[in-house]
């Protein structure tokens, strides 16, 4: 019997390739054990990386689940265009849950006022879409370095029939042995990129050389200042009288609803320069650019308990 002969090869994987393998393992595990998985696509760089990882996990087969987008009606047009094109290229079914439609039909009430956001309205539509399509495992692109409640969440995050997360009673999760068992009506949110940091995501995008929506790179756009953040002017977000609009060179670090995603001043128009800026930054991406997390210290934990990603 010939055992592998010892060689000088050290068989070491770089941290990005280790993270990639871990994520691919999770994608495959879910598809092997669940009946109707779906990938929650937010339009952000994290979901774009997720799509690539899913593509790798099942190559040369196609990604064996649909992409689900909860459309708040306030999305960046660049992101919607990107979404449609990628879904087409990958031959994916696209399921859209529309917040606008629910408002038009009187099932949800839009917030009003200058600070209105549809962030909270996403949750009921997400739960509705999951129920309607009987999705039993919903992949999300959340990372543990984003926020302190997420730092505590398992890769397989069990949700009861109301979509709620119970942080004090999480299933133990050991090694790479995941427990996806659940009853009808319950589901699991799965976070394959839990262990990636923001910098890992950017380095991976660079190493892989894939395309991202243009709003991630520095560009000129009209903005105004609110709570110390640069908010993009859009049909969905109008500045108050005391909030003058000016043109600035900005890029986005996270991409969500246009009403609560702020831009950062930046000259970085290439991936290399974005990475250099991220590596040097002293502020977290949510702290810098997400108005929704600034409500309170436990804003994210509370939204997750209600059924948020």
């Amino acid at each position: 019997m010939s055992e592998p002969s010892p060689s000088l090869q050290t068989y070491e994987l770089s941290h990005l390739r280790q993270l990639e393998s871990e994520s691919i393992h999770i994608f495959r595990e879910v598809v092997a054990e669940f009946e109707r998985p779906g990938l929650l696509f937010s339009g952000g760089k994290d979901s774009i990386v997720m799509l690539r990882l899913a593509e790798k996990a099942f190559w040369p087969g196609r990604i064996p689940f649909p992409v689900v987008h909860v459309d708040t009606g306030h999305n960046f047009p660049e992101v919607l265009e990107f979404r449609d094109r990628r879904a087409e290229e990958l031959g994916l079914r696209l399921i859209v849950g529309s917040v606008q439609q629910a408002i038009d039909e009187g099932r949800l009430v839009d917030e009003t006022g200058p600070r209105a956001t549809r962030n909270r309205l996403q949750t009921p539509i997400l739960l509705e879409t999951i129920a309607q399509h009987k999705i039993d495992a919903a992949f999300g692109g959340a990372r543990r370095d984003e926020e302190k409640a997420r730092a505590k969440e398992r890769v397989y995050s069990f949700r009861d029939e109301f979509g709620q997360w119970d942080p004090k009673n999480q299933r133990p999760e050991l090694w790479n042995l995941y427990n996806g068992r659940h009853r009808q009506g319950e589901n699991i949110r799965v976070f394959p990129i839990s262990n990636w940091t923001e910098l890992d995501i950017w380095q991976y995008i660079q190493e892989e050389g894939f395309e991202i929506p243009s709003i991630y790179l520095a560009h000129e756009r009209p903005v105004f200042k609110r709570d110390g953040m640069l908010m993009p002017v859009s049909p969905f977000l109008t500045p108050n009288a005391d909030e003058p609009v000016f043109d600035a060179r900005v890029r986005f670090r996270t991409v969500g609803d246009m009403t609560c995603t702020a831009a950062v001043a930046s000259e970085a128009a290439t991936l290399e320069t974005v990475i250099a800026e991220i590596a040097a930054t002293r502020i977290t991406e949510r702290g810098e650019t997400r108005a929704d997390d600034r409500f309170s210290e436990a804003a994210m934990e509370d939204r997750k308990r209600e059924g948020y990603f």
Binding site: K152, K168, S194, N195, E297
Partner: peptide, 17 residues
């Protein structure tokens, strides 16, 4: 990171950093 942990001043679950 959890509300209960901050209130009770103890660590209940694993936090990843």
């Amino acid at each position: 990171g959890l509300r209960a942990e901050r209130e009770q001043g103890i660590t209940i679950d694993v936090a990843y950093r």
